[in-house]
Design a protein around this nucleic acid. Structure first.
Lengths: 229, 229
DNA sequence: AAGTTAATGTAACATAGGTTACAAAAGGAT
DNA sequence: ATCCTTTTGTAACCTATGTTACATTAACTT
């Protein structure tokens, strides 16, 4: 059916065997459509009741501002899904224009399959529901964490929160390398890169941290922790 | 069973009849515990695998900072639930200390009930799963909206976004009353109240809006929309 | 209606972070 | 090794918003 292993790619279908996935497809009876290069898969403002699973090609998500200018927000790779939050929300209006930048094959999976277990009460269904619950919960958790960064009252605090988190991820080793570079880190904190550099250097000069590029060393854990409140 | 009608209070149990709810309870076989005034229901850092449903009394959620100072974050009323995001997330560590400020009766509902349909494939279960999916999706949508406000590059933009949203909620009537007062509005935007007042007044003096207290009138819809980008 | 309380407006001043533009260093390619 | 590109640092200046403290208005109570 699918050229790549969806069950390996996608969190939603994780821990399903290939044969389970096949069984699921029989249950779900999804619609599969092919789109030519440049075709619109779904418009901003459309009602969405089906999960989109990209089988072949690629999809791009655009958002239009009030003047109608479209800007690329993100893109979907083969095996990825789109629309979980929308289809289950009370306001099931899709917020993006979804376009196929090249020929694409898309599976539309009706949302009801995720809460209407088949008569056989198959374990596949249970896993699927569990995965979907988990996916949505994780998404909300991620957004919540993002908000704690965004609402931190100073850049210093954002940095401290972030470094402490990385420190704990590294089981309390005071020297570690982060995955984000300056630009990405600044983006995540919603500040400008030069501002971030400035603050990092100030913290270095105060003897709180040391760093070169993406490798950080916590020198004064106590001060770092203080700044967290 | 329950003194108040859970099925009316709680989004999770919405559209369940009283008898459906009773049936669900038989299925779920939840643990019910009573807590005395001041008792800790759940500690920050505990693993959480059960949804908490408050049957009687009240619960308060505290968060401890790095110095161990507890501060009240929110409180739970009878009929409300707690922990949806935590129990289904990959990191099922509860982030709050939950305390009963007065005698309380709490139901603990194991999470598995939400993805393990009973052998009867009862409709109750379907509704429950659907409600839970919906609840999580709505929560994520809400957080996403909050993030668009937090990351707007200026206070002016936040205000315009908000007023436009209210305007659309009112079916395009240019005069409307909002539920938030200045303080709450400022909180939501994550700015100081005097800063918000200042900006609102600036917009009034530019002829974009008019307002007294919580009643706003859009005078220049075009300018308002411009500021949204 | 007077007095009290809560909500909002206002103003002066302080500052964190934005902005811009360039310098320096690191990493890659030939 | 040299050139080129990318990433990071640096500095000067600017501005939006924070901060504080008080004035005004509305709302509520008696």
């Amino acid at each position: 059916m699918s050229e790549i292993k969806i069950t390996e790619m996608n969190k939603l279908f994780a821990s399903l065997s290939e044969s389970d996935f096949e069984k699921f497809l029989q249950c779900a009876n999804p619609v599969i459509k092919e789109f030519a290069r440049g075709e619109i898969v779904m418009d901003q403002g459309d009602e969405q009741d089906s999960l989109i699973l990209l089988l072949q090609g690629a999809l791009e998500l655009y958002k239009a501002d009030s003047e109608g200018n479209r800007s690329l927000v993100s893109s979907l790779m083969v095996g990825e899904t789109f629309g979980e939050q929308t289809i289950f929300g009370n306001n099931n209006i899709n917020g993006f224009t979804v376009i196929a930048p090249k020929a694409a094959k898309v599976m539309f999976i009706d949302k009801s399959i995720f809460y209407r277990p088949c008569s056989k009460v198959c374990p596949t269904h249970q896993i699927l529901i569990q995965n979907m619950l988990s996916l949505l919960a994780n998404q909300a958790n991620l957004l919540e964490k993002k908000i704690t960064y965004l609402t931190a009252k100073s850049l210093r605090k954002k940095i401290c929160l972030y470094l402490l988190e990385e420190y704990y991820k590294n089981n309390g080793v005071q020297s570690f390398t982060v995955t984000l570079n300056r630009e990405e880190m600044a983006d995540y904190f919603d500040v400008q890169r030069p501002s971030l550099s400035r603050e990092l250097i100030a913290m270095k000069s105060h003897g709180i941290i040391d760093f070169t590029r993406n490798t950080f060393k916590i020198l004064d854990l106590e001060k770092l922790t203080e700044n967290t409140n």
